[in-house]
Every structure is written in structure tokens, then in C-alpha cells.
Design a binder for these strands. Structure first.
Length: 485
RNA sequence: GCCGGUAUCGUCUAGGGGUCAGGACACGUGGUUCUCAGCCACGGGACCGGGGUUCGAAUCCCCGUACCGGUACCA
């Protein structure tokens, strides 16, 4: 039975690295009919609440990564907040001490810091010197009598510790470089190593899929599994996501929260597709995947060993591809938030103006990379507050075009059928009769009705803008053009 | 410093003892065209370095280098 988990700390938001880790876990579980557990690692926090993890939960939900056990839905191993499981960790630490696998340490953090600094100044590394491991029963009794705060340290045995990583292969650490790490702090709070192992054992986790940065923690945890008499799970350490400068992805690289990508107009299925391919490959040449295809194809051994640079341009492309594959009607539904944000939404787009709305979407569908781009680029269709681009006006609304544009607007006004094909024949024959280039008229018309130098086909645009608005815009533009003296 | 990981076009990657080293994004050129996108065609662009094994190494081994991660009473 495959059981995996995603175990974030409640930092308030889900960053892309965490999202990908969650995705790999989720894909693995779904691929094999396993169980995906969400567990909140909040041992640091005084108190935990659903609010504190809402950023993470929102991100997971947006991406469509649903969990089978977790804080909100419960499960056989509840609770799923570590802050509500403290007794388990304290019991476990006590068991470790009782069986001789761990010992109390009365050293003050300040003393440890000094020793570490001194060792570093001498040019070497430092591991805990086992001062308290050598304490006699009398020493201990004296400290206890004085109520000296005590932490619990794991007693690392001699030898080597190894594990088979599903991504990297066998990895081995000499125990000499692993210090007697603290498992329970002097305030009785567990450290990460203890809580994660206790929970993973308790929750019957079969595969730990997590970031590469945990590789060097793993031997400590393997040792803990041994002390608890449990077989360790399988480990798969996935490489990190880097920024363009090959540094760990951070805010200065741009958006790092997945919810930011939602606001920016990315499709969750595109994000999932892109993230899946960042550090994982199905082996072939296929780049575009639906969620179902990813589930059917995913395997841990396709995860590459090296870190991957996050490439926003490729994300844009993937998003564009998913947008194009969306049925127009569905795309319309997805567009609502972006149009609302731009102040362009109205309910009748789904009722009386539905056909018009769908036609507008189809016109822009191949050329938008994000949902937000639709709101920006299709704005002249939805709103009449044209913002004229100075360059476009200077280039295309020249004095010599004033009179022809005026005449064309009247020809348009007189048209029976205001459709793209009629508009095109009208404009072209008009241009021919006047012996001016159709392109010049087209460009002038574009600027007149959109305010911009760039748009989809002008005749389709005109049809969607409609006769009244189009003619009015053209007349307004004519009035703006300096007359030919 | 020590420990660990990684190394194929700018980026994501496929492949792997004999290949024209493949694909995608990005980039360049041309075509379609009313602009921009899109689409189509074409193009430039990579096996970190040095040794070894071998008839033959980008592939296997060793060493180096670079980068990343860890080195906490953080997770």
C-alpha cells in the first residue's frame, strides 16, 4: 500500500518548490492508487489554526491536488497538525532515553555556540562533543536537583548509515560526521527529525518524496527509524528549483507563490504540466499533458538528479497551449476573474451577449498567453474608454488619411450587413476607387476603433465592436486628426 | 573547512561504448498577412576539464573543477 505525504510548515503561502514536491507526491499516489496525506509541520508555532495554513491549502486546491487524509478531513491517523501531536513526540523521546538510544543534555545553547565558534575559528567543523553523554548518575542527579534545563540528544552509534534513494541511488554517510542531534528541546518541543520520523511511522508512510535539501537529514532519520524498531520508508529526494541565476528560487526572481500565478492569469492545469516537467521527464518527446495523462505516466525514476532552473517563458508557452486546448465556453468561464479585475465583466456575457462573448474569445484565443492578457488586449471590445497610443496615432492617423477615413466611416454607416466579409470588401473597393493603399486605411481604422497599432484582424474586430460604436469611434478619430491644410 | 548531491544547446530535457547526439522553450531567417500573435518551413546552438579502460568514451572508472544543498535546542 503506497502512502505518501506532503508536510509543509505553515509559512502562509505555497511556493512553487513546495507545489512541485506536493505534485510529485500526489501524482505518485494517484498513479498507484495510494493515499496522499497532508500534514502540517508546525512544531515551531505556539498555536496552529486552519487560517495559518490557508495559503498552502488554497494553493493545493487551486492546483487540484486533493488529499485523502489531512487536517480538515481527518483520517485514521489524526490529528494532522504536529502541534496537536506533541505528546507522541515526548513519549517517543522518553522511550529513546529509556532504552539508551538517547541521553539528556544539560549544555546551554550559549556554551554550544561558543564551542562551535571556536572550532570554526580553528578551521574545522564541529559535532557535539558528548559532554553530557559522559555524565555520571551523580552528575545527572545534581543537575536534576538544580532543575537545569535539559534537551534530549540522540546517541549516534559508530559505523556508517546508508539508504537507497530512488532518485540518486545508494547514499552513504560516515556516522562520525553526524553529531548527537537534539530530538527534544529543553522546552519539550520536538525537533523536526523526531516529529517527522514519529509521524511517518505512525502514519504508515511508505515513500518519502521531498526536496533534495533533506538528503543530509536523512541519515539521522534512518538512525531514528532503527532506534524505534521500524524499517525506514523509501526515499526519493527531488532536486531543487532554481532562479535564472542558479540560486535557490526566491522572491527577487519574481512570483514564487503559486497563488500569484493564479492572479497573473495562469491555468492550474498549465502550472501542473509545467511543474511536472521541471525535474521530471516521461522519457519521450511529449511536452503537453493533461492531469490524467500525467497520472498515467508518472514514475519516480524519471526524476532527474540535477537542480532545474525555473523558466517563465516556457511556463507562458505551456499556458498558451492549454488555453488553446480549452473549449471556448470553458475558457469563457475561466476568464471571469480576470475580466472582473479589469472591470469588464457583466453577467449578460453569459446570457444575451453569450454568442458575442464566445466570438470575442475565439478571436483572441490563439494570441494570449495568460488570461490577463485577454482582459488587456480585448479591452476595446468591452469598453469604450479608448486609450490612444501616441506612436500609433503619429504613425497611422496622418493628415492625408483624414478625409478618406471620414468617407469610409460613412460608407460603413451605410452598410446593411456589418460583418467581417462585407466590411473587408467595402474597405478594399473603397481603397481601390480612391487609389490609396488598403493597408493605410486598415491601419488608420485600427487605431481609430481600438486606439492601438496592434489587434486581431481588423474586420473581425469591427464586426464585434458593432456598427454604431465603430462608426462613432471613427468619426471621433477623424476629428482628432490634423486636417490637410 | 567537512559531509552529501549534480554536471548534454542560453533554459527544461531525451539518449547512452560506434547516433548526422533527438525534442521543447527562447533566438534568427523566410512564407502566409492589414499590424501583432498564431501557423508552416528552414537555421545557428551542447555532451565541464584531465587522465585511465577500450579497436572505439559524450556514455564506464579515477582525479580535478564548478554549481547546489547540509553542516542549529530551523524545517
Amino acid at each position: 500500500m503506497i502512502r505518501v505525504r506532503f508536510a509543509p510548515s505553515p509559512t502562509g503561502y505555497l511556493h512553487v518548490g513546495g507545489a512541485r514536491t506536493a505534485l510529485f507526491n500526489w501524482l505518485y499516489a494517484r498513479r498507484h492508487g495510494g493515499t496522499f496525506v497532508l500534514r502540517i509541520e508546525d512544531t515551531d508555532a505556539e498555536r496552529s489554526s486552519w487560517e495559518m495554513v490557508s495559503g498552502i491549502v488554497d494553493g493545493l486546491r487551486w492546483l487540484g491536488l486533493d488529499w485523502d487524509e489531512g487536517p480538515d478531513i481527518g483520517g485514521p491517523h489524526a490529528p494532522y497538525f504536529q502541534s496537536q501531536r506533541l505528546e507522541k513526540y515526548r513519549d517517543a523521546a522518553a522511550r529513546l532515553v529509556a532504552q539508551g538510544s538517547a541521553y539528556y543534555c544539560y549544555c546551554t545553547p550559549e556554551l554550544l555556540r561558543q564551542k562551535r565558534q571556536a572550532a570554526e575559528a580553528a578551521g574545522g567543523g564541529w559535532v557535539y562533543d558528548r559532554t553530557c553523554c559522559a555524565l555520571t548518575p551523580d552528575d545527572i542527579a545534581a543537575r536534576e536537583a538544580d532543575n537545569v534545563p535539559r534537551a534530549v540528544r540522540f546517541k549516534v552509534p559508530q559505523g556508517t548509515t546508508s539508504f537507497a534513494d530512488l532518485v540518486h541511488g545508494p547514499i552513504e554517510f560516515p556516522n562520525a560526521v553526524i553529531e548527537d542531534f537534539v530530538v527534544l528541546r529543553s522546552d519539550a518541543q520536538p525537533t523536526y527529525h523526531l516529529s517527522v520520523v514519529v509521524d511517518d511511522i505512525d502514519m504508515r508512510i511508505s515513500h518519502v518524496v521531498r526536496g533534495d535539501d533533506h538528503i543530509s537529514n536523512t541519515p539521522k532519520q534512518v538512525l531514528l527509524y532503527g532506534a524505534f524498531g521500524s524499517a525506514p520508508p523509501a526515499f526519493a529526494h527531488v532536486p531543487l528549483i532554481l532562479g535564472i541565476d542558479k540560486k535557490r528560487l526566491s522572491k527577487r526572481h519574481g512570483a514564487t507563490s503559486v497563488m500569484e500565478y493564479q492572479r497573473l492569469g495562469y491555468l492550474p492545469e498549465a502550472m501542473v504540466n509545467f511543474l511536472a516537467l521541471l525535474g521530471w521527464s516521461p522519457g519521450g518527446d511529449q511536452e503537453l499533458f493533461t492531469r490524467e495523462q500525467l497520472i498515467a505516466t508518472f514514475a519516480l525514476d524519471g526524476i532527474s538528479g540535477g537542480n532545474a532552473v525555473f523558466n517563465p517563458e516556457k511556463l507562458d508557452w505551456v499556458n498558451q497551449q492549454h488555453i488553446q486546448r480549452l473549449p471556448t465556453e470553458e475558457l469563457g468561464r475561466r476568464l471571469e476573474p480576470a475580466l472582473r479585475a479589469a472591470g469588464l465583466w457583466s453577467e449578460d456575457l453569459l446570457s444575451v451577449r453569450r454568442e458575442w462573448f464566445l466570438a470575442a474569445i475565439e478571436l483572441f484565443k490563439p494570441r494570449i498567453r495568460t488570461l490577463d492578457q485577454f482582459a488587456q488586449e480585448a479591452r476595446p471590445l468591452f469598453a469604450n474608454d479608448l486609450a490612444f497610443e501616441a506612436d500609433a496615432v503619429a504613425k497611422y492617423l496622418r493628415p492625408e488619411i483624414r478625409e478618406p477615413l471620414a468617407a469610409l466611416s460613412e460608407a460603413f454607416a451605410a452598410l446593411d450587413a456589418f460583418t467581417a466579409t462585407h466590411l473587408e470588401t467595402t474597405l478594399r473597393s473603397f481603397a481601390e476607387s480612391r487609389q490609396i493603399k488598403a493597408a493605410a486605411l486598415i491601419h488608420a481604422t485600427r487605431v481609430a476603433v481600438t486606439g492601438r497599432a496592434v489587434s486581431p484582424g481588423i474586420f473581425e474586430m469591427l464586426e464585434l465592436i458593432g456598427r454604431d460604436r465603430a462608426v462613432e469611434r471613427m468619426r471621433t478619430a477623424v476629428a482628432l486628426v490634423t486636417p490637410l491644410r
